[in-house]
């Protein structure tokens, strides 16, 4: 039995459904309606409305990536320190919510964040000023953090869990205090996880159109919204593909940065 032949179905499948479709995006993006080569669809990113959408998307996705990192790192450390039943706990926190549709979960934030909603009731009970962030960029960032936090926690958790406890013990023996051990041992060793987490949060956040539609009240257009409209409403596939190519450049840039920093080369998905 030739084992290699077993990869044939996947090779065929990935050629047809991964490689060819990507080539088509490039074909559409680099041609106009008559089929002639053009760079217009890509340069269209410089048009005011597109540039603004891209800028907004970059700002919001960078913001939510930083927030995710700040929230996720301590969480991953805590999860690592509790050895008992941690596995079922991880599932409970991150996998289980996925069984409730993510559109609905995002939509539920509208109810929570309303002027007289649950969050504001709690805030006024605590004597704090109300939060009016529905249909603002802040609500979109909240939606991004909410949806993509697991993608930051899991890779960081995986690298932290792999750190040899003896290394940390050695650092302590050699006189480092807790902060020093963290800064000079734990943090550097967890960089691959952090990088992979950043990639996994930044890309979906940069390209989302769903979260901005639901929580931004369709007033805030991100680059994802613009592309989605080109395909489903305006019907200008060439322009839509051109803008997608621009988007992919950011993704590739992100991947190159993470490939350079992560010497292992293997993408640790979950």
């Amino acid at each position: 039995m030739n084992k290699k032949a077993l990869s044939a179905p996947y090779l065929f499948w990935s050629a047809l459904f991964i490689i060819v479709p990507l080539c088509m995006v490039f074909y559409y993006g680099l041609t106009d309606k008559s089929g002639a080569f053009t760079l217009q669809n890509i340069l269209a990113i410089a048009r005011a409305e597109h540039a603004k959408a891209l800028w907004q998307a970059l700002l919001l996705s960078l913001g939510s990536t930083v927030l995710c990192l700040l929230l996720a790192y301590p969480l991953a450390m805590i999860l690592c320190s509790m050895r008992t039943r941690q596995h079922s706990f991880l599932v409970l926190i991150f996998i289980l919510p996925m069984w409730m549709n993510f559109l609905l979960r995002t939509f539920a934030w509208l109810t929570l964040l309303e002027k007289t909603g649950v969050v504001n009731n709690v805030l006024s009970f605590l004597g704090l000023p109300p939060l009016n962030i529905i249909n603002t960029p802040s609500a979109i960032v909240l939606g991004m953090v909410y949806n993509f936090l697991p993608f930051m926690v899991l890779p960081i958790y995986n690298t932290l869990a792999k750190i040899d406890q003896n290394v940390i013990a050695a650092a302590r023996d050699l006189g480092a205090n807790g902060v020093q051990t963290f800064l000079r041992i734990t943090l550097p060793l967890s960089v691959p996880g952090v990088i992979s987490g950043i990639t996994m949060v930044f890309v979906p956040a940069l390209t989302t159109f769903v979260i901005s539609t639901i929580l931004g009240g369709s007033k805030i257009l991100l680059i994802g919204n613009v592309i989605e409209q080109e395909f489903t409403q305006t019907g200008n596939w060439h322009l839509g593909s051109g803008l997608s190519i621009v988007l992919m450049m950011f993704i590739i840039l992100n991947m190159v940065v993470s490939a350079v920093t992560d010497k292992d080369g293997e993408v640790n998905a979950l």
């Binding site: 088509m24 995006v25 997608s244 993704i251």
Partner: peptide, 17 residues
């Protein structure tokens, strides 16, 4: 590729196909 690429790009590329 499909893991790292944006969902929206995967979606439109398949639609074009």
């Amino acid at each position: 590729i499909p893991m790292l690429n944006a969902e929206i790009v995967t979606g439109i590329s398949l639609m074009l196909l």
